[in-house]
């Protein structure tokens, strides 16, 4: 393991990224858990193969969330404090779908992100950029009948991290998603189009298939943009597997 070694240069990490990109990508588009350019995977990716087993009845169902769980204001991250946060106000909207294109209805979508300066409201974030007293950066929403979600927030900044020397994360919003089956659980990150850091970032590049990479990038959508108010981005999310109709085990 590399714990005692000097941090790698970007050039060395970029060479490792290129090497990994030359191998055939996984058919499902997910990253390999053991991905050397992202150093923290070294001790956290399992070494043994996953054990293949059919999902249980429990795993074919998913937690249910409702109006009591999520307040509408949670979807507007610019209104969680007395004042307006600094930064570029944006709207992020899209649909959550299963592999067959069916909407995932009334299900929980959660987001968290850095502020416009690239700083997280977290004790572990040592980036010397200012916190914004008017921005926490966490939000929740339920999808509607068509699987749509919509957040109002500010565009997060890029930020440095210590994977290697001069490592910077492209601007991103973390997303957490549930489907109709626990097996469809997904945590991922949404990126913004045209970011110059894509090629340098081991986390983005851990998705080695270029087409799959594109599925992590929101599209600027002028129809979502609101005049005199906020720029709009559209990002649809497709969960693993097909929509599983949960068994009617509760008699409801």
């Amino acid at each position: 393991m590399s714990a005692s070694q000097e941090p790698a240069t970007q050039r060395a990490v970029s060479a490792e990224i290129a090497e990994a990109a030359a191998a055939p990508p996984r058919p499902d588009g997910h990253p390999d858990r053991a991905y050397r350019p992202y150093r923290s995977t070294a001790l956290r990716a399992p070494q043994r193969p996953l054990v293949v087993t059919p999902p249980s009845l429990t795993e074919l169902a998913a937690p249910v969330f409702g109006a009591a769980d999520v307040a509408p204001i949670e979807a507007d991250l610019t209104r969680h404090h007395a004042g307006e946060p600094l930064g570029e106000r944006i709207i992020v909207t899209g649909r959550v779908l299963d592999g067959d294109g069916r909407p995932v209805r009334h299900q929980l979508v959660e987001v968290w992100q850095a502020n416009a300066s690239g700083r997280y409201r977290h004790d572990g974030d040592q980036h010397p950029a200012p916190l914004d007293p008017n921005f926490t950066g966490g939000g929740r929403a339920l999808t509607d009948d068509e699987g749509r979600y919509r957040f109002v927030t500010i565009k997060p900044g890029a930020y440095p991290w210590r994977n290697h020397t001069n490592a910077w994360r492209p601007a991103h919003i973390h997303f957490s998603l549930f489907g109709t089956a626990f097996t469809q659980r997904l945590v991922t990150q949404m990126y913004f189009p045209g970011d110059p850091l894509f090629g340098l970032d081991p986390i983005f590049q851990s998705v080695t298939d270029e087409k799959a990479q594109q599925r992590l990038i929101a599209a600027y959508d002028h129809d979502v943009t609101q005049p005199e108010w906020a720029l709009g981005y559209r990002w649809d999310i497709v969960l693993d597997g097909t929509h599983a109709t949960p068994p009617d085990v509760d008699g409801a």
Binding site: D28, G29, H30, P31, Y38, L97, G99, D100, G101, E110, V111, W112, A114, Y120, R121, H122, G124, D125, T136, G137, G138, G139, H172, H174, S176, L186, V187, T188, Q189, I203, F204, S206, V207, K211, A212, Q213, R215, L216, I237, V238, L239, D240
Partner: peptide, 19 residues
Amino acid sequence: MLDLTPSQTVGPFFAFGLP
């Protein structure tokens, strides 16, 4: 079938977003 959205790490800073 639609192509699925790839996974990305939860990262270190989820404390104010998920718990």
